[in-house]
Write a protein that binds this DNA or RNA. Structure first.
Length: 549
RNA sequence: UGUCCGAUAGUAUAAGGGUAGUACGACAGUUUUUGGUACUGUUUGUCUUGGUUCGAAUCCAGGUCGGACAACCA
């Protein structure tokens, strides 16, 4: 076995378990709660769980952890499935914790019969008061020693709907003095007269997370139940239920969740951004959701690559956004066709060009066998306003009075003059071109430092272009003083309603990815119509040019 | 003043008693019809104090720092 790459700690555990014969087949699961959209942190968990069974054989189930009917919706089930498929993974079984409600109920009965669970009718406040604190032990509830018969009777009546929400709860009988708060007689069933997205009104009692997750894993014969670090202290309970119920011993392993700079990752906060209309929905391209990244133009491959590069470990981490950007640039550099678009136009007139128009040939992608296309050229072009400086900075290789640049795929031009309006703004640049300098056939012998992009005025199409930047101005918005929303970046979205694009872009579809030469990677947005194309900037090109001060 | 988890360059992540390596970032250079790409180079690290050992990032003990835990959420 050649060791090309080192293993992460979970892969080591899996390899050991497989090599020792502890398990014949690896079974993992991805267990989202359908109460929100999946984000890049979930992508890390998805890649881990599905990646493990791809690498070592076995399979991964998709199991919706739907034990709380008031927050869960079918809309989320659907979006979550779409996101997992988009990432490129296939689950073996589509399952729901709610599939096991009958079985979970009988597990509860079994616990009661063993004297390991009891019905408590204390109020939520009373229960909290007796729970103790992390540094002080709790105290037993006065209902802790009900008879098994009475517990059975009340629990059955809870199920039958005889009581209102909160009147009774079922608790595991463990140890109110445990240093682990979760072992202090945790609540395992509560009454909720709520309609469930799958089981409808069949149930009015629902199991808590701790009484559903491990047992669901066990029912499915999950060998390695992988979750994030905040569940470490749940492991003791997880194992306790499995042991007392004498069921398949799934094992839980925890890794550190992903944190990304300049964004937030908690579903609660993302929901707030959506509900407060601070972004335009869950799939707003500025959101770290999988649907947001997809709309922004990220490829599944780039997201998988990112998840691969960040690694799996147990220490808290904060990944720099630049790594995500690297991953998408790396992918798109190889695959995206190069086209020209002018975002902030200024007119350039070639005063000695008398051919009218001319079709030039553009190479689609110098990094791939991308073929070529026709690009119309004429004596009036749009170029980028920022590519001209009236008073050039040092090391400026673009347009300036008397300076020469190459027009990409076309000719070398020399700036002869420029026009200003009454406010002193440059409105037009006048150049002469060098006929012998045509791209691919340059006999002029002239070498220029700078090459700029352009679009022929008479052939240009207009498009709306949306530029995105970091959602937050702080790298750690949820660690800042005050509300995280105070750190939203007011410039996270810039809309350019009238940019000019080369005519070939009229054929763009939602799956196309482009590099707008010198400007970044872009894709068509779903808001596009036949009359108006809308492009999203996925990411800028890396820019090593030091802006002159 | 509890229990649990963790600590390696700016950020991540390897090295499992024997040369501290890789990636991203940053910086510099070469190439270039994208100030892109590619290539080259530079920079910066084992939390601390002891112990075991010929030898410790690694094993042990104490400390420090960070995180988690007191929802009828997951």
């Amino acid at each position: 076995m050649s060791e090309e790459k080192s293993l992460n700690f979970i892969e080591e555990i899996v390899e050991n378990d497989l090599n020792s014969g502890k398990y014949k087949t690896l079974v993992t699961r991805f267990p989202p709660e359908p109460n929100g959209y999946l984000h890049i942190g979930h992508a890390k968990a998805i890649c881990l769980n599905f990646g493990l069974t791809q690498k070592y054989g076995g399979y991964t189930n998709l199991r919706f952890d739907d034990t709380n009917p008031v927050t869960e919706k079918t809309e989320y089930v659907n979006s979550q499935q779409e996101d997992i498929k988009w990432l490129g993974f296939n689950w073996k079984n589509e399952l729901y914790a709610s599939d096991y409600f009958d079985e979970l109920y009988s597990f509860a009965i079994k616990l009661i019969e063993k004297g390991l669970a009891y019905v408590d009718e204390s109020s939520a406040d009373e229960i909290a008061a007796l729970k103790g604190t992390p540094t002080e032990p709790g105290q037993d509830s006065q209902y802790r020693n009900r008879s098994i018969e009475e517990n059975l009777d009340i629990f059955t009546r809870m199920k039958n709907g005889e009581f209102s929400d909160g009147a009774y709860i079922l608790r595991a009988k463990i140890d109110m003095a445990s240093p682990n708060m979760l072992m202090r007689d945790p609540i395992i069933y509560r009454i909720k007269h709520a309609e469930h997205h799958r089981t409808g009104n069949k149930w009015c009692i629902y199991p808590m997370y701790d009484f559903a997750h491990g047992q669901s894993d066990s029912i499915e014969n999950i060998t390695h139940s992988i979750c994030t670090l905040e569940y470490v202290s749940h492991r003791e309970l997880y194992d306790w239920f499995i042991k007392k119920l004498e069921i398949f011993p799934s094992k839980q392993y925890e890794f550190a969740r992903l944190n990304l700079t300049s964004t937030v990752m908690s579903k609660r906060k993302l929901l707030q951004l959506v509900n407060d209309n601070l972004v335009n929905g869950w799939d707003d391209p500025r959101m770290p959701t999988i649907s947001g990244l997809r709309r922004r133009g990220f490829t599944p491959k780039s997201v998988r690559e990112f998840c691969e590069r960040i690694g799996i470990a147990k220490r808290e981490n904060l990944i720099e956004l630049s790594l995500l950007e690297f991953c998408i640039r790396e992918d798109l550099n190889k695959s995206a066709n190069r086209v020209m678009a002018v975002l902030d136009p200024i007119k350039l007139v070639i005063t000695n060009y008398e051919k009218g128009t001319e079709d030039l040939i553009g190479e689609n992608n110098p990094e791939a066998e991308g073929g070529t296309r026709v690009i119309p050229f004429s004596n009036e072009l749009w170029i980028e306003r920022e590519d001209f400086m009236e008073v050039p900075a040092k090391k400026w290789f673009r347009l300036a009075p008397g300076a020469m640049v190459r027009l990409k795929f076309a000719y070398i031009v020399k700036c002869e003059d420029f026009v200003k309006d009454e406010n002193g703004n440059v409105t037009e640049i006048h150049c002469t071109y060098i006929p012998e300098s045509k791209s691919g056939n340059d006999t002029s012998g002239i070498n220029v430092k700078g090459t700029i992009h352009w679009v022929s005025v008479q052939h240009a199409k207009t498009a709306e272009i949306r530029l995105y930047d970091r959602l937050f101005t702080s790298e750690t918005p949820d660690a800042e003083e005050g509300d995280f929303k105070d750190y939203l970046n007011p410039e996270s979205l810039t809309v350019l309603p009238n940019a000019f694009i080369e005519p070939a872009l009229a054929d763009a579809d939602l799956d196309s990815r482009y590099q707008f030469i010198r400007k970044g990677y872009f894709c068509l947005d779903k808001d596009s119509t036949a009359e108006k194309l809308v492009f999203n900037r996925t990411v800028t090109l890396k820019d090593t040019f030091k802006k002159p001060k």
